[in-house]
Nucleic acid binder design. Sequence first.
DNA 1: GTATACTATCTGTAAAGTCATATATGGATA
DNA 2: TATCCATATATGACTTTACAGATAGTATAC
Lengths: 181, 181
Amino acid sequence: MSLSHAILGLLSIQSMSGYDLKHLAFEQTIAHFWQADQAQIYRTLDKMAEAGWISSQLEIQHERPNRKIYSLTDTGRAELERWLGTEQPLPVYREAFLVQLFFAEQLPRDVILDQIERHIAGHQARLLTYENIPLPKLDNAAMERREIFWRLTLDLGIALEKTYLAWLETCKKVIGDVSVT
Amino acid sequence: MSLSHAILGLLSIQSMSGYDLKHLAFEQTIAHFWQADQAQIYRTLDKMAEAGWISSQLEIQHERPNRKIYSLTDTGRAELERWLGTEQPLPVYREAFLVQLFFAEQLPRDVILDQIERHIAGHQARLLTYENIPLPKLDNAAMERREIFWRLTLDLGIALEKTYLAWLETCKKVIGDVSVT
DNA sequence: GTATACTATCTGTAAAGTCATATATGGATA
DNA sequence: TATCCATATATGACTTTACAGATAGTATAC
């Protein structure tokens, strides 16, 4: 269960609630390499608390529902450090759109081109989101040590989106040229 | 359930057994964008047969265990055609190594560099595998129509691996330069 | 002769991820 | 006044994926 280790990492930076984890962390900060479902986050927090990796403190709010703020325990911090050094497998690729394209021979050209346009729009939106994340560039001398690692992961996200977009443009061109419709 | 649609596509090219699907199709042909577990393939085939998308014929072998050869039914072919035109979501990124790198601040430099070396080796191996797949290049006039689509998906796989590798080299350089160990 | 590997299908079990919805409060909008 | 949205946590039900092993015959290597 590697979601729990992502949560350990996030809580090692700052204690927060399940809601924050979803809306600030998984949707804003690390969305480009780890996405998590809200229900899964809450259930994983329960398990982690049971395992003694994190503890929670109820924060009473008056104008809003109460929050459960989770913090790392010593056990949790040790588990994070252990896990950070473990060997992780290469990512598994599983992309339905590529399945469609692989068998697109059986499809009218316009349908394929529509799909491609949609994916171009989607990847452009992602790229824009990533490029708007305010992190200093690598050549910045005033960079904090931790920001180097954050920037590196973000740079990969940006590079991958650019690779996708360049490839999608090639697809558009190639498929537009295919004589048989 | 999108594995079943990948299987529909594969069987639309050629009838085959679950074993062939695993060892020829999922491990050789479309491994760069869809990987499937053997147990999952067999169970999905059962469900697809129940749904009437495919039918099987027992092939008696004498020197080896018998095989169940699956073929598309008309229903299955219709379902494939329908699905090929549906909108598919952008891929979900979930890569444990990037989680590790994001929080690598807490790790000694040598450990990070080891991880990076391992990933370089892994991606180089993948790249080599992809480059050895015998498919004509896009500029080849003698290319079959279906091969255009196969080549396009393969080209993305190759481009992504190259992007990873270039980025990993940057990581190596940047982290090697970080003054604090 | 024994161990290992390949072909071939199938089952048990668990973990991981998805989708919908329930509950509750307060504020903004129509 | 009703509806929607944001905050906040939680549960039910399901699908998808992963990992390990059972079964069983043949072939190959040592």
